[in-house]
Amino acid sequence: MPRVTYIEHGGKRHAIEVPVGDSVMRGAVYNGVPGIDADCGGECACATCHVYVDQAWLARTGAPGDMERSMLACGADTRPNSRLACQIRVTEALDGLVVSLPDGQH
């Protein structure tokens, strides 16, 4: 199973095996990684699963879609590597993915 590493804002790392087809958001929520709220349940509608994708993985996670870009435009502390974790689908090619969490979801 692909492994995704979540780095909390304070630096704590969680390496989690996430089934292919699940979102990076679900991988965190189902495994109790703190710092991802996902209020809307994965509808790309709340921006409370905001993550920063490690630079080395940006090409493989792809670019955000239109709605995701709209939601990120409203977020606090968004950067060029910001994504909504509910919109990143886990594949074998993402085995080893590293994402960092912001200081809070909002």
């Binding site: 435009a73 409203c74 606090a76 200081d103 909002h106």
Partner: peptide, 10 residues
Amino acid sequence: RAVTPMVAPA
């Protein structure tokens, strides 16, 4: 975006 910093986590 002008008012977002007010309610940001920090």
